[in-house]
Amino acid sequence: MTARYAARRRRNAVAMALSVGATVFGLGWLVLILGVLLWKGFGGLSPAVFTQMTPPPGSSGGLLNPIIGSLILTALAVAIGTPIGILAGTYMAEYGRYGRLTSVVRFINDILLSAPSIVVGLFIYEVMVAPMGHFSGLAGGVALAMLVIPVVVRTTEDMLTLVPNALREAATSIGLPRSLTITRICYRAARAGMVTGVLLAVARISGETAPLLFTSLNNQFWSTNLNAPMASLPVVIFQFALSPYKDWQSLAWTGALIVTLAVLALSITARALIPSGRQS
């Protein structure tokens, strides 16, 4: 009996050790990736990165036009995607909470949430780039908006569902119409969560490369024209990293560091905004 007990204890100890090891292993990658990024990207970080255009091979330069391009594309995507996402989420939580449409939309939305982003790029290419006959920043923004919508729909619905019904009843009891109850009462109660959703969406799209490859393409020069190809940080990183030129590769690392820091800052801010105890 004791031998068997010892064997069980041993097996338990092995499993526990393995699980601790797995956690160290998992966290190790994060440390390793961030470490390499800092090591390779930090050296290139200088004011020139933020003030100069992308250089031709063999000369020095910066990342100003892709940084501005990324900001424009992200802003465009948020401007298009957020209203649609919030409205759809509002319908699901407020009007049709138990309806069939809501459960279908929720299912489809969850699939869109993890659908391959390169397919979104193909879709926008087919419906926007091909008919228009040229790549454009607008198409890139719309492609990114398609990634914003599912994230915002999901968080809006979740956060509005958490708003206590007593608030709605109180608003109705003083004669407030439904639409005002939602916009003045429910939105305010759920504001922190909804802002979190938008921040998470921005974090998600600011590193997205695949949907931009054949929508906004790339632009070697300064351009804020939405009707023309537009540079963006991820696409420039992709192009520069795979090039044989040392200058370009080191700029790619610097760009990668900037993107990662921005994304991590956004996701940490978003998490800090979630009221404690509500974290899923």
Binding site: I33, L37, R204, G207, E208, V259, T260, L264, S267
Partner: peptide, 8 residues
Amino acid sequence: LAGVPSII
């Protein structure tokens, strides 16, 4: 770790 963009 899930938030790190895939290009990185």
